[in-house]
Simulated scan of single mutants.
Amino acid sequence: MWFLSWIVIGLIMGAIARAILPGRAAGGWFVTLVVGVIGAIVGGFVGRAFGADPNQHFWSFSTWFWAFVGSLIVLFVWGLIAGRRRT
């Protein structure tokens, strides 16, 4: 069940991360949402590595915070990878 909640949160956090890093990511909104879902899952693993419990429940601040951090990380890395391809 936690995986499904990370997907939903990732869709939202991907859009928010794209708004914060608008020029960094190549691709359209679909790519941003997919990157957001991957970022939310990565954020969950990163949060656990730092000793947090990002899988408390859907409305937990920790869950949303780590999904946001993971989405920013993955979106930034995606922007670096896609930026190299364009040039």
Rank of each mutant, 00 (worst) to 15 (best):
L80H: 05
L75I: 09
W59Q: 08
G47E: 01
W66T: 07
I81H: 00
F50P: 09
S60T: 05
V8W: 10
G10Q: 03
R24G: 12
F76I: 04
R18G: 09
A19S: 11
W78E: 02
G44L: 08
Q56E: 15
S60I: 04
G27W: 08
T32E: 06
G70S: 02
W64D: 05
A15M: 09
W64F: 08
G43M: 02
W59S: 11
G23D: 13
L33K: 07
G43H: 05
S5K: 13
D53C: 01
F3E: 10
L72S: 01
G14K: 02
V77W: 03
L11N: 03
S5D: 14
I41G: 09
G83M: 08
V42T: 05
G28P: 01
L11I: 08
I16K: 06
L11K: 00
W2T: 14
F45L: 09
V31G: 11
S5L: 13
V31Q: 11
T63Y: 04
F68T: 07
W64I: 05
I20V: 15
W6A: 13
W66H: 01
F30D: 03
I12Y: 00
R85T: 04
T63N: 11
A17Q: 08
V42M: 01
I41D: 04
R18N: 10
L80R: 12
L4C: 08
V34G: 00
R85M: 13
A82M: 07
W6T: 13
F65T: 03
F61P: 12
G83V: 04
I41E: 00
W78V: 13
G44Q: 03
V74L: 08
G10K: 05
F50V: 06
L21M: 15
F3T: 13
A67H: 04
W6R: 14
W59M: 10
V34A: 14
R86H: 13
V35K: 08
W64Y: 04
F30S: 12
R24Y: 13
G28S: 07
R48W: 04
F58R: 10
G51R: 05
H57G: 10
I7P: 03
L80D: 05
P54K: 11
I41F: 09
W78G: 05
H57K: 13
V46N: 05
W78C: 01
G39Q: 09
N55G: 06
N55Q: 10
W64G: 04
L11M: 14
G14Y: 04
W29T: 10
V42E: 00
A15S: 09
V77D: 05
